[in-house]
Structure formats: structure tokens, C-alpha cells
Design a protein around this nucleic acid. Structure first.
Lengths: 200, 200, 200, 200
DNA sequence: TATGAATGAGTATTCATTCAT
DNA sequence: AATGAATGAATACTCATTCAT
């Protein structure tokens, strides 16, 4: 009996929870991090404001959840970077960077909130930033092909380049402010990466 | 109406104005953009809240003023980049990047607010971002030394690298989250830039 | 969701709402329309300032509500006017006007605010004024006894007289500024009305 | 010397004073009594806010001044009423009422503020209302033609009718809310007055 | 579990008024 | 006499959060 009821309630609870997360994403995308209020989120989710507090302690918590979904994708793309780096060809790099633009386009709408949250709350900065550390894990396989002495440098090098690409796409796609067409951006970005990594 | 009276009053007004700007800077540094309230600013400036509105229409306006001071320095550093690029030596680049760290350290405290403001207010993003366009002007001299066909690409290339360095310093110095020591960061950054620009 | 809970909550809400309305009436009477602040109203109602906004969007809305109660009485008295007109005797008119003084005395305290609101806000003027149009509806029965050709004039005629009486009571009772005693006022007013309506 | 300078200064002072009064009238007409702020008045007068306090202690004082000008005209029209009443013809009454519409149209714009001020400030009500007492003075000549026993009633009677006409024009001309055309209004108003005064 | 109602704390903004010049 | 700058006080409004149901 308890199990039955329990699992039903659990399902209801999970449903409400995901409604909140989905609504929160929409609101964060439209209003930014500071601009999003719990009232807006619960209105969007069509639930009562008090219900929110049954599932999350505050705005930051639900934001973490929203972002978590993105990060799974991030990991995936980084794993693909490992493959590209292993192949060691300019072509593979170019293809990966192109793929990155697709990812960026998909996630563009949430980025401003993410940047805003990171900038305003040091807690977030610490929490979201370490992903660049995790990058090392994802490309561990590639790093092992690098001479041990160069390995530390190479880790930093790749991190910097990824940061650069992230920023480039943020500026170019999200904010739309960048001179030059997309083809040119891709070409130059690829060239910088290849040169920096001694590819070809 | 007389010059004497006028300039005295002008001086008084300017004094109050700069008190506000200074106080605002302190508050923005400590509390971030959204966290800074006009009450905090006027308390810090030890003036009446209403006096603020005599000098600025809102928080955004005083923030623009605060940031404007930084941007003057930015232009200066970009002019120095032109010199470094013209010399075309790895050493010059290394020195310039080192200098950039000093600048970053000086301005580090305001950066979170800046990023936050840019992320939250599209108006700010438009206003502060275009600086990368102005970068082209500052390095115009260098660009003229590049074959005409490569010029457009080179402009983008330099922009990307500067964005990368900005981000690197933001992460490393301001938020303090980056594996590896500062020496290593500088070394790798310099190497990426030189390789990307075919220096040496 | 259950009827019991729903109606209990509804009752609580209605209670708070009526507390606000009652308090607002007191404040409007004492302070006038412009002089009444939401703070005063909520203090008088002994509720939190924010609670006010849960029930009304602004001062104008609660004022409308306060006035609405009066207007129900107004309609009632106008219906009685119809009866008096139908009877067509000076005595009936006199009695009705006397009754009007009672009504005026009851509602006198709120009138200044009403006049003030109407004078300051064209929205209110439009909203409260059209009642004179509704007057025609209330005395429709009487109007049908009037020759068709005179009907339009008679409508205006009655409206004017009612406006006159309203004003007279406003000046005499509310503001207390009028030479002569109340008996005299009633006698003269009745006489003017009867003569203007060819009664007797 | 003192006289010369004095009269020059006096002239300047009078000029500024009348600038304030003129500006105040414009602002009261546009913004209403409560809506008019000293800032708006001084902006309209193109003088400094502090200068206002050199000439008037507060908003009420300048409003009194503004209204005083109107009242002179009022007295004039009331004197003409005396003439019309003396002639004792329907035609004379009709002409006077028509003339009243012209006056009403001229002064319509300030009326809302006047009503608002009277409604909100009992001081104003007392100050502006007594004019109906002065009405008795203006029509004193006519009153002497009335049998001594009816004189008191007649005074009230005329006052009521004037109040009615004032209100009618206020509603019809200023607020524009009144069914029927102007001709009809004039005709009915004239008829009521004549009947009430036993003219014809 | 979910909700409607209520709250307390905080924030921007406006205005009348005063003072040194 | 006139002004620019500054002030203190008041007000509307919003939001995150809690509690009884």
C-alpha cells in the first residue's frame, strides 16, 4: 500500500519538480538570472508560489538543476574533442568546432543567465568553472599521448582554447556582435587551434 | 553667472559627482551589479539618497561612468598591443601579456559587475562589447603591414586571442579558479598567441 | 478545492477585503482622496502594507469599491424619486427631498473625497458622472407618462434638478457653508422643483 | 536713489511674481491641484525652484492668487445677473445664461483644480464658497424689489439656481458628459430658472 | 502534497524646503 | 533678488518566504 501510494506520489512530485525546472529554464532564458523571480517561474509552471519551496530552497537551487542538464551535453562534446585530438588532423578539428557551433546555438539562450549567475555569485563561479578541470578527464586519453613533460602545459593549452571558443560563440551567436561571417570565424578559429596544438 | 561663482559651484558639483562615482565603484566591487543599491552607494558616499538623483538618473548611468574610466585604460593597452605586434618578436608579446596581467589585476575587482551587467542587460552588452571593433582601429598600423588578402582574417584572429586572454585573466585572477601557476599560464598563453600569429 | 475549505478561505479573504474597504473609507473621509496613502489605510486596517496589494492594485481601485457601496443607495433613492414623480404631488416631492437629506447626511463624509477624485482624475469623472444617465433609467416609468415630444427635455430637467439638490446638500451639509436654516433650504428647494416640474 | 533702485527692483519682483502666477495657472489647468508640483510651476515659469519661495510660501498661496483673477470676472457676471433679474423678462434671463456659457467656457480649464482644491482643503472651501454670500450683495438691488417677507427665500432661491447653472456648465462644458445638445440645455435651464423665479 | 493568504524587509523615486553663494 | 546644490521625509511597490488549511 505504502509503496503504491508512495510511487504514485513520487511520480506526482517528480512531475511537479520537472514542471518547475522546465518553467525555470524558460524564465531564465527570457529574463536573465537576476530578472527571474520565483513568482515568474511559478506562474510559468502554473503552480502556486509556495509549492516551489516544497521542491527547491531558492532560486539558486533550481538554477543549478537547469544548468546541470546542459552540462551533460557539455561532457559529451568534450569527449568528442578527445577523439578529434587523437586523430590529430585539421579536418577533425574543423568538424568538431563546427559541431560546437551547433551545440552553442542550442544552448545559446541560457548562456546569458549562466554568465550572469557566475559573475554575480562566486558560489556559481566555483561550481560551474571546475568543468574546465573535468575537461582534463575527458581528454585524458589524448593527454597520455603527449610526452609527460609537456602534459601539464598541454592541459592548460586545451583549456584556453576551449575557453576562447566558448567566448567566441557566446559573442558571435548569442550576442550577435562580431564582425565577419560565420565561415570566416570557423576558419580562423580552426587555424588558431591547429597552430596552437601543432596539428599539421 | 560670474566665472568665479560658477567655477566654485562647478567644482563643488564635480566633487559630489566624483564622490558618488568613487563610492559606486566600491559598492559595485563589493556587491556586484544587481546587489548594488542606490542606498548602499549614497551611504558609502555619505550623501543623501536624493542627491544621487541630482547627478544620475539611475544605477545604470553611474555604472557606465564607473566603467568608462576603465575603458580609457583598455584603449591604452590595446595601443601597446599594436607596438608589440609591429615588433613581431615573441619577447615583445610576452612582455605585453605580462603587462596585461597587471592591468587585469588592477581592474579585476570591477570585472564581475561588468560581466554581470553585460549578461543581464543587453543594453550594456551592446555598449561594452563593441570595443572589440575598436580594437581594429588601435592595431590599424599593424594591420597595414599584413598582405591585404589576409587582413580581414588577421583582424578576427587578433580579436579572438584578446578575448581569450581577457577570459583567461578573468578566470585566473578574478575568480581564482584555474589549475596551474601564473608562470605556466603566461608561458602557454604567449605560446598560443605567437603560434597563432606566426611570430618566430 | 473542497467546498468547506474553499468557503472558509473565501470567507477569510472576504473578511480581509472588507477590513481594507472599511479602513479605506475611514481614511478617505478623514484625509481626502489625495491625502489618503496606502500606508494609512493598511495601518487603519491593522494589516501589512503588502497585503493591500493582494486585494487591490492601487488606491483608485479600493476607492471605486468604497464608492460603489454608496452608489447602490443612490440607485435606491432614485427609484424612490420615480415614485414621487409619478404621484405628482408637492407633498411627495417634499418627502422625497427630506429623505434625500438623510441620505446626504449619511454619505456626507465621503463626498469631499469623491469630488476631489472626480476633479483630479478624469477617469473617475467619467466613471461616476454617467450615473446621471442611469437616472433616466430609474425614472423611465415616469418619463413614459410625459408626452413624447417633451420627454427629452424632461429628462434633462430632472437631471438638472437632481444635480442642484446634490450640490445644495453638499454645500449645506458637508461643508456647512450656506446661509439660512435647513427648513428654509428644504422649502425653497421643494418649491423650485415643483415649479420646474409643473407640480400643482 | 533708493526710490529709483527700489522701484526697479519692485518692478522686477512684480514681473517674476506674475510669471509665477501665469505659469501656475497653466500647470493647474493641465495637471490639476494635487498633480501640480512646485517643480512643474517653476519649470513652466523658467525660474529656479528656490525663487518660488521668495514670492509665495506654498502651493496654496499661489493658487489663491490664480483663482482671485477669476473671481473678479465672477463678480462682473453676477452684477449682470442683477440687471437681468431687474428686467424680469425671460429673454433677459436667456441672454444672461448664454453669456454665462461664454464665461464658463473661458474659465472651464481651471475649474477642475478649483473643485479639487475645495474638496480636499476645507480652508479653500470656506474661502471660495462665501462667494455665494457675496452674490446677495451683487443682486441687492433686485432683492429690494421683492416683498420683505420673501426676500430671504429669494436669496436662497437665486443661489440655488446659480449653483445649478455652475454645475451644469461644469458637467456639460468641462467634463463633456451630458446627454443632449447645448441648445436643449440652454432652453431647459432658462425654463427652470424662469419658472422658479416666476418670470413671465 | 499543494495552496491561498499574509507578511516583513527592502528599493526606487519624488517633493517640498533650506542654505550657501 | 535669484540660484544651484543638497537634504529629509514620505510613498508606492516588489519579492522571497512562512503558515494555516
Amino acid at each position: 500500500m505504502t509503496t503504491g501510494t508512495g510511487s504514485l506520489r513520487e511520480a506526482q512530485k517528480a512531475l511537479t519538480r520537472s514542471r518547475i525546472i522546465d518553467a525555470a529554464r524558460v524564465v531564465f532564458e527570457q529574463q536573465g538570472y537576476a530578472g527571474a523571480s520565483i513568482g515568474l517561474i511559478t506562474t510559468e509552471a502554473a503552480i502556486n508560489r509556495a509549492t516551489f519551496y516544497l521542491h527547491f530552497p531558492d532560486k539558486a537551487a533550481v538554477f543549478r538543476e537547469v544548468v546541470a542538464l546542459d552540462r551533460m551535453h557539455t561532457d559529451e562534446y568534450w569527449r568528442e574533442l578527445n577523439t578529434a585530438l587523437m586523430s590529430g588532423t585539421r579536418d577533425a578539428m574543423a568538424r568538431w568546432i563546427l559541431r560546437l557551433t551547433h551545440w552553442a546555438r542550442d544552448n545559446a539562450s541560457l548562456m546569458p543567465s549562466k554568465h550572469e549567475a557566475m559573475a554575480s555569485d562566486p558560489e556559481f563561479a566555483k561550481e560551474f568553472q571546475p568543468r574546465y578541470d573535468r575537461l582534463s578527464d575527458e581528454i585524458a586519453e589524448f593527454l597520455r599521448t603527449v610526452p609527460a613533460d609537456d602534459r601539464a602545459d598541454m592541459k592548460i593549452r586545451v583549456q584556453m582554447l576551449v575557453v576562447m571558443l566558448d567566448q567566441m560563440f557566446f559573442h558571435a551567436l548569442v550576442q550577435g556582435v562580431w564582425a565577419g561571417g560565420e565561415d570566416q570565424l570557423l576558419r580562423v578559429a580552426t587555424d588558431i587551434c591547429c597552430k596552437a596544438l601543432d596539428i599539421e
